[in-house]
Nucleic acid binder design. Structure first.
Length: 105
DNA sequence: AGTAAGGCGGGCA
DNA sequence: GTGCCCGCCTTAC
């Protein structure tokens, strides 16, 4: 059975909430976790439609290349939050990205 | 390095 | 109700 579109967003937020503090994930990884390895864009959309930043740690989600990507509330804010959690950011990129990368499994 | 094309979901005309 | 474009992307050329 197909879940309702709204459920898709909720599913993304749910996964985001699973991300431990000080760690980051990628949109691709989220898409795969949702069962759609090519839905990375839809996942990004869900994050963008996210109710509010602190409720859903969409700021812990970055691009597959390690770039921060974007942020609805402001990329600068995203960087600040990540750095605050222990994730060092440099020139819009996550330091030790691979080590900070959290996989849902 | 930059550019172009791609597949997923939502919103608007 | 249908169609088109866009978006916090990814990958390949």
């Amino acid at each position: 059975m197909n879940q309702l579109p709204a459920d898709f967003d909720a599913a993304v937020w749910k996964l985001l909430k699973k991300i431990p503090e000080g760690k980051v994930t990628t949109y691709k990884q989220l898409a795969i976790a949702l069962g759609k390895p090519n839905a990375f864009r839809a996942v990004g959309n869900a994050c963008n439609r996210n109710p509010d930043a602190p409720f859903v740690p969409c700021h812990r989600v970055v691009k597959s290349t390690g770039e921060l990507g974007g942020y609805a509330k402001g990329l600068k804010k995203k960087i600040a939050l990540l750095k605050r959690e222990g994730v060092k950011i440099k020139n819009n990129k996550v330091l030790n990205f691979m080590e900070r990368l959290f996989e849902f499994r």
